[in-house]
């Protein structure tokens, strides 16, 4: 399977946000439930517009929901890259 470089924690955020269902999130951002499923499983990287809409729903900055993991870096390296960016 093709490796997706964009990771996210939408699943955890949904549960923290009053156990929001995938369908509810899909309705709020204007996509189908299947697309939310694909994003959560990291089978699909959303467009920038959709990523911002999701961030708006959770009232969080984009980088707290999505993180970029270039090939060859593990999660700790990716985190340090994000911190360098800050």
């Amino acid at each position: 399977m093709k490796k997706n470089l964009v990771k996210n924690n939408i699943r955890q955020l949904r549960f923290m946000k009053h156990e929001m269902t995938q369908q509810q999130l899909a309705d709020r951002v204007g996509v189908t439930r299947q697309t939310i499923v694909a994003i959560e499983k990291e089978k699909y990287s959303p467009s920038l517009e959709l990523a911002f809409l999701i961030a708006q729903v959770f009232e969080l900055p984009l980088e707290e929901i999505f993180s970029f993991h270039p090939q060859g870096t593990d999660s700790s390296q990716a985190t340090s890259l994000e911190e360098e960016g800050k």
Binding site: V31, T32, Q34, Y44, S47, L50
Partner: peptide
Amino acid sequence: EPSFADERD
């Protein structure tokens, strides 16, 4: 069935 096609579709 999905009633519309989103960006992924």
